[in-house]
Structures are given as C-alpha cells and as structure tokens.
Computed example of a mutant assay.
Amino acid sequence: MDRLIYTAMSGAKQILEQQSTTAHNLANVSTTGFRAQMDTFRAVPVVSNGLPTRTFVVDSTIGTDFRAGPIQQTGRTLDLAVQGPGWLAVERADGTEGYTRSGSLKINENGVLQTEGGLNVLADGGPITIPPNVKISFAKDGTISSVDSGNIPGATIEIARLKLVNPDVGNLERSSDGIFVTKDRLPADVDANVGVISGAIEGSNVNVVDAMVNMISLARQFELNMKMLKDADSNAAKADQFLALS
C-alpha cells in the first residue's frame, strides 16, 4: 500500500514544481529574448536495505527551448536582435562572461553600453564606452560606429565591435540571474557568422497557448495524485477492519 503513497505523494509535489516553471515561463512572455524552460518527470527508486520496490517521482529539468522568438521592429537605434543562432556577450555582476539574446540596450551615465538590466555589453576587449555627443549605428557584423552629432557632421569613426558568439547549446546552462553561461565556465569564441539586426528586438519564444494547456494538464494530474492518496488511505482503513475481524 505504501508503494502507491510514495508515488502519489512525490508526484503531487513535483507537479507543483512544474506548475511553478510553467508560471515562470508565462510571466516572461513579454521578456525580450527569453528562452522557455522545459521540465519532465522521471522515476527514482528508493534505495534501502531491502529491495528497491518503491519509487519516487522526480521533476527533472531537461533544458531550455532554444528556438528563436519573433523579431519585432522598433526603429530604436539601441535595439538589436541577433539574427539566427548566436548570442550577445555581457559582463555578469560577478565579473564573469554570460550570454543573452536580450538586445534592448542603453547607455548609462558613464557612457558604458549596457543591457536593459544593467549588464555591460562586451566587445572583444571588454566593456564598450560610447563617446559623448555622438550618434551611433550598428552594422550587421556588430561593428559600432559614431558620427558627431554637432551642426557639422563629422567622419564616421569605428568605436568597437560587439562580441557575438555561438557556442554549442549543449554547453550552455541558465544561471540564477537568467543569463546563460557555458557549463565549463570558459569564455566562448567570437563567431564571425553571427549577425544582428539594428532597430529591432527579439521577443520571448514562450507559446502562451501551449503553456496554458500545460498548466491545465498539470492541474488535472495533481487532482489525480490527490485522489490516489485518498484511495490509499481508504484501502488501508478497510484492511485494518479485515485484520481486526480476523
């Protein structure tokens, strides 16, 4: 009887964890460049001195949906969308290198090019500083050029080039801050084949309809597991009655 209780109890707990993941995906349906998280269930035997006849249900994170999101034209100079596979390299809060598809950029009060979340955007040699009183433009290969914004236009000057990378997605994992990092923690190499689209951003790849259907399905599974627990309790009570009669 307790075999059923192990499965139903752990299954209900992990379903709640998957509901949290689905809710997290839905909450980021409007987040620029967001990649949906995917989970699955797996069975883990309970190891003890006896035979492993009892099994826990465990929620296993199997990875990330790396499919591209929709490209949305904004016309804003500091908006970038990575075209095809690839990532923008950024400097995380701890100083390590991370990767994002969120190309909604800004220039802070010190002239440093940053993401909307305040992370420094990296070039081959480090953070990028934009000179004051200039207009900038982005080329497809990530080259940042400036033109003097005074009354008399000056010559175009190359400031820096974005570090655009395309590491194997099998070597990428999502960190706690939502930025992707390499599993081996080594910086990815620059990939000349990665390009950007200026004046556009990439939307989230979360499918709202699929996520809502998944939430309903998980709710039904939770109800089923709770019913199994009630059935196990009822069966145990009836078994006690038979034992008392005998």
Rank of each mutant, 00 (worst) to 15 (best):
D2K: 09
R3M: 11
L4P: 05
Y6S: 12
T7P: 01
A8Q: 08
M9C: 02
S10W: 08
G11L: 11
K13A: 15
Q14Y: 01
Q18G: 09
Q18N: 13
Q19W: 05
S20L: 06
A23Y: 06
H24D: 15
N25H: 13
L26E: 12
L26N: 11
L26K: 10
A27F: 10
N28V: 04
T31V: 06
T32M: 03
R35E: 14
A36N: 07
T40K: 07
T40C: 05
F41Q: 10
F41M: 14
R42K: 07
V46A: 09
N49T: 12
T55N: 08
V57Y: 03
V58A: 12
V58C: 00
S60D: 14
I62M: 12
G63H: 05
G63N: 08
G63C: 05
F66V: 12
R67K: 14
R67W: 01
A68D: 13
A68V: 04
I71A: 09
T77N: 11
D79N: 10
A81P: 06
Q83K: 09
G84M: 05
G86V: 12
W87C: 09
V90E: 07
R92M: 15
G95R: 05
E97K: 06
G98Q: 11
T100G: 12
G103W: 10
S104W: 02
I107F: 04
N108P: 02
E116Q: 15
G117Y: 03
L119Q: 14
L119G: 00
N120D: 15
V121F: 04
A123C: 08
D124W: 03
D124S: 15
G125E: 15
G126A: 04
G126R: 03
G126S: 07
P127K: 11
I130D: 04
P131S: 12
P132Y: 09
A139D: 14
K140R: 13
K140C: 09
D141Q: 04
D141E: 10
S146E: 15
V147R: 10
G150S: 15
I152F: 07
P153M: 06
A155I: 02
E158D: 14
I159H: 01
A160Y: 02
K163F: 00
L164F: 03
L164H: 06
V165Q: 02
P167T: 09
D168C: 00
E173K: 03
S175E: 11
D177Y: 01
I179D: 01
I179P: 00
K183W: 01
D184A: 03
L186R: 13
A188W: 08
A188K: 06
D189P: 00
V190S: 03
D191I: 02
A192C: 00
N193D: 13
N193H: 02
G195L: 11
V196A: 07
I197H: 03
I197R: 13
S198E: 15
S198I: 02
G199I: 05
E202P: 02
G203C: 03
G203N: 06
S204I: 07
N205C: 03
N207R: 07
V208S: 01
V209S: 08
M212R: 03
I216S: 07
Q221Y: 02
L229Q: 06
D231I: 13
D231V: 11
D233C: 00
S234F: 00
A237G: 07
A237R: 09
Q241D: 15
F242P: 00
S246N: 13
